[in-house]
Design a protein around this nucleic acid. Sequence first.
DNA 1: ATTCTTTCTTGACATTTATCAATTTCTTTC
DNA 2: GAAAGAAATTGATAAATGTCAAGAAAGAAT
Lengths: 192, 192
Amino acid sequence: MFEVFRKYLDSRISLTDEQFDRITSVATLKKLRKKQYLLQQGDVWRFNAFIQKGCVRVYTVDDKGLEHVLSFAQENWWTGDRESLLTGNPAKFNVDAIEDSEIVLIAKPDFDLICKEIPVFNDMVHDIIQRSFVASQNRIHASISYTAEEKYLDFVKKYPDFAVRIPQHMIASYLGVTAETLSRVRKVSAKK
Amino acid sequence: MFEVFRKYLDSRISLTDEQFDRITSVATLKKLRKKQYLLQQGDVWRFNAFIQKGCVRVYTVDDKGLEHVLSFAQENWWTGDRESLLTGNPAKFNVDAIEDSEIVLIAKPDFDLICKEIPVFNDMVHDIIQRSFVASQNRIHASISYTAEEKYLDFVKKYPDFAVRIPQHMIASYLGVTAETLSRVRKVSAKK
DNA sequence: ATTCTTTCTTGACATTTATCAATTTCTTTC
DNA sequence: GAAAGAAATTGATAAATGTCAAGAAAGAAT
């Protein structure tokens, strides 16, 4: 049931079977069909979510009905709305499945307890957050510095697996350009 | 010498005098004149830096000589290049003083030791990183969703003190637009 | 296999933002 | 307080990107 999660944890930290069982004792497995929501704008997000299988997106919908993708996540990534989790305020973001997915959920109070009980787990979590922060700094830098074409090439280079797996219009939205612009950009850079 | 730093720490966690002395025993105070570098692109960044006084910017310079501002920081904020600090790779960013500034520096190995020795300090650090991550997520969202005008209004609302303290062309660069565009945007929104 | 839906592409045109150059305003320094 | 330097504004024009609409291609469902 939690094989992928176990493999992930073993690849980063060493846990005894007891510790792993302790973790899974508070974990639940959620299966999502394509297009199903994991979280909807306005609800409070209370979990740490680890993706065992599939692919999700985090996004908002604005007044005009346009979607803006904040992030993608696939196998062995964590997802959710950190701000809502941290503050307890209603989420600004939706999370839904791009493909049928399997998500490990651990409610915040349980998660926090585990962090206290298992220091290496805690260290791992902090390391992940720190790296996420660095990654988002780099994304900001790309966003304010690059042209549409540069943004796309940078994205493909950084996340080649996303580039083939995720519909282009969602990638466009992630990059902050329209689907039409991305289509044209791809056409131009294909020739080079 | 470290009064501002002490006040800052006292406002977030409780430390004994001994613990505070332990921290400052490995801290140095760096004074920067306006325009002086704290870090230059290409050098490795090895510190945690707390601003006691003044204001700095973190930015890159691209091939065309254009500057792109990743972040500002002022009194009671931390700054530096987290990626370089984390990985030991040369920094992508410059950091320099927008005004004469006073910065508390703690080298990474010392800082990590202190985190181990003083759990509440460690917790504080993680909390800061987590909040920084959330803030940068929000900035990404603004960057991909908003028009130039919306970006500026959002910035002013979030950081009213920066808006009055920092030259407009740097704010423009932070928002990912040209100085001319920001000037026009301000003119238009002033009328409303 | 056919239909239905979603995604992607293309064209024509509109809008936003960038670029370049000139001028004005504001700061800093001596 | 005059001179120099930096920052901000403005105008004219160019380039990039967005919008709208239509059709083609690809994928999913029956």
